[in-house]
């Protein structure tokens, strides 16, 4: 668990972070979001002491981080940044092995760990272990960046706009990857982004920051339902809020279940695991007010009606 209490950071006369209090529960994926210069990155980097905080206290699992040697602290916290920050003169395997080597693991264990992580991030070890960062695509490099952050098996992961420089398709696949890994490993993750869609997709809790202060912190659903002020509303995309909210809900939650599964007739259909936003888009496209819902095997398990979307309680 990470607890920030009344933490401030002054750069000269400017208050980059202004007395914020925040606690991130173990296993939670907490997203810090805001416009550039709002202090979200500074907040993140105070947690692993890359930036020293000016006032307040930061505790990790109850221990004040100022009591911990900064290098020891950082070796226990995974760190991934935008543009990867991979070491260009080292191979992928050597890059991933940085923290385990710093921790003094035996060579055999490091080798096993590197291989395990390459598998976890869907990179074939035989193909990628010996490559240099310049030989990787942006998405592959970022996967290596995430693998490197996970290498020392830290409980906490700090991610500073890790997918910010990627194209939308690669970004989405890496977001899915992160969700999959998180479901598997249950790390405590603090994730900085300026992309609300990314925040809504990944977060258990979203912390909206503006001018060094926390404006609102809530679950994605609650944030969409009740934005605290115009700034948050604006960040949520104003008129597109409805769609964003629909994007968070699965078709299965609103469909009318069929008692007997059967193959549906030809025509548009939607999977139970898709979200309502995709369902709505399909309805608009095909000009229909109901869609057959199918499972992974393509058998119809229910029907989704437009009415159900409209009648949904707030």
């Amino acid at each position: 668990m990470i607890e920030l209490r009344n933490v401030s950071k002054l750069f000269g006369q400017t208050r980059a972070v202004d007395a914020i209090s925040l606690s991130v529960q173990t296993g939670e994926l907490c997203v810090l979001i805001g416009t550039s210069g709002c202090g979200k990155s500074t907040t993140l980097r105070m947690i692993n002491r890359l930036i020293a905080h000016s006032a307040g206290s930061i505790r990790i699992d109850g221990r004040d981080i100022e009591q911990i040697d900064p290098q020891q602290l950082r070796r226990g916290i995974g760190y991934a940044i935008q543009n990867t920050g991979l070491f260009p003169h080292w191979t992928v395997a050597r890059n991933i092995a940085v923290v385990p080597r710093l921790l003094g693991w035996p060579a055999a264990r490091i080798r096993r760990r590197v291989e395990e992580l390459l598998h976890l991030l869907d990179l074939a070890p035989a193909e990628f272990a010996a490559k240099y960062p310049s030989q990787l695509s942006g998405g592959q490099a970022q996967r290596v960046g995430v693998a490197r952050a996970l290498a020392g098996d830290p409980d906490i992961l700090l991610m500073d706009e890790p997918f910010g420089a990627l194209d939308p398709i690669t970004r989405e696949s890496l977001q899915n990857e992160l969700l999959r890994i998180q479901a598997q490993l249950r790390k405590t993750i603090v994730f900085v982004t300026h992309d609300m869609d990314e925040a809504l997709k990944l977060a258990n809790r979203i912390v909206v920051m503006d001018k060094g202060r926390i404006v609102q912190q809530d679950s994605p659903q609650a944030l969409l339902a009740k934005p605290a002020n115009a700034f948050v509303e604006n960040l949520l995309g104003g008129q597109e809020r409805g769609l964003k909210q629909a994007g968070l809900l699965r078709v299965a939650t609103l469909m009318q279940v069929l008692t007997t599964a059967a193959a549906p007739l030809a025509g548009p259909r939607i999977k139970a695991t898709d979200n309502l936003r995709q369902a709505l888009s399909l309805m608009l496209w095909h000009r229909c007010s109901s869609l057959p819902v199918v499972d992974e095997q393509g058998r119809q398990v229910g029907v989704l009606r437009l009415d159900a979307l409209l009648d949904r309680p707030r």
């Binding site: 900064p70 020891q72 070796r75 935008q82 920050g85 991979l86 940085v98 923290v99 490197r148």
Partner: peptide, 15 residues
Amino acid sequence: VEAGVIESARGMGMS
């Protein structure tokens, strides 16, 4: 030397 590389080296816990 790229700032991001140095930053991540520090962030990994190098002295």
